[in-house]
Design a protein around this nucleic acid. Sequence first.
DNA 1: GTGGGCATGTAAGGTGTTACATGATTCT
DNA 2: AGAATCATGTAACACCTTACATGCCCAC
Lengths: 191, 191
Amino acid sequence: MNYRHTWSKIMTKGSKTQYAILGALSIQPMSGYEIKKMMEETTNHFWTESNGQLYPTLNKLEKNKLVTVDKQMVGAKLRKIYTISIMGKNFLKKWLLDDPEYYPARNEFMLKLFYGQNVPPNISINHIKKHGEKCQKALKIYIEIEKQLEEMVKQKKRPVYFLLTVKAGINIVRAEIDWCKESIELITKYH
Amino acid sequence: MNYRHTWSKIMTKGSKTQYAILGALSIQPMSGYEIKKMMEETTNHFWTESNGQLYPTLNKLEKNKLVTVDKQMVGAKLRKIYTISIMGKNFLKKWLLDDPEYYPARNEFMLKLFYGQNVPPNISINHIKKHGEKCQKALKIYIEIEKQLEEMVKQKKRPVYFLLTVKAGINIVRAEIDWCKESIELITKYH
DNA sequence: GTGGGCATGTAAGGTGTTACATGATTCT
DNA sequence: AGAATCATGTAACACCTTACATGCCCAC
């Protein structure tokens, strides 16, 4: 009498790791190692993968013919270059069309701040100061990347979408930097 | 007296669920059900817990004497009111003193946007528009809460820290709303 | 008398990280 | 010589969610 279990098994969309990998390969053929490096350099502030997810998923994608693999021997060492297949591209596109899911992202910093009345105010102020410094550092890096990308987008060497995610990072960290200043004042005033 | 050794033996440092629960109980004694409701009403935008985490963790906290429990029978139904113990408060404080960990939060929306060149631009624009609408709705709610909290903080009925996390939400969604507008323009211009 | 809120909890399953194993090549 | 980087991969474990199980009480 219970269809729910079957239903959820059929409808499982599974891990997003596969899409993150296929997305990377939609730019150019790469090895697993290169995919990871690329993620660290470009999508690091909103997406990364660990080796424990990356390599098994790559093999699964190959088995399902969503990617093809070119095995090269570099000396005695294996190097596998993955290329996205037509099926893989379609699979990626299908996912891109769906509305993204919104996870409520957990934030330990906010959680600690929320319960700040249990410790002296300077503890919370220090957490905020350090947070602000991290944001400042991130902002510098993002602005540098933005400058480079803006040029490349104008020359159609990079898609505008790359620039947008950097600009999102910039807007958010700026908002956080403003909030840090205001928050320290408020704690000082009200505690 | 150094509790650190004892604590690490008692509870693994691992899951933050225990701290989220102890934090809630630092405000007032509550049942598991009330803790969850409270989280949904106050920390929802940066922290929630599922039943599968909440109830086992409460029992573990009791076993380790970080909380005490008052079992009440409401008709034939059990109701357990948890109160944080001195040990529990110390355990919470210890965690509050440590620098918060920064997880790189995954964001499927950004991931889809980043690989937007694989689909027509109106797809990405629609994702952004919907995101903007969600932010607008959230902003309205946050501003309403902010208004109420501001009054209560002035009257010292609520700690300033509650207000700060709401203000953080406001700053961030405002930044995102601005970014949405700018992004749609940029896609239109460069695609 | 039914739906929703109150209330506690478990089972199964999936997602994800960390640490490790292995070994070549390249830089200092 | 030793450290860092290149490169693929596995095992163990931790974490978390979903769906389910149970049943009371209250309002409409």
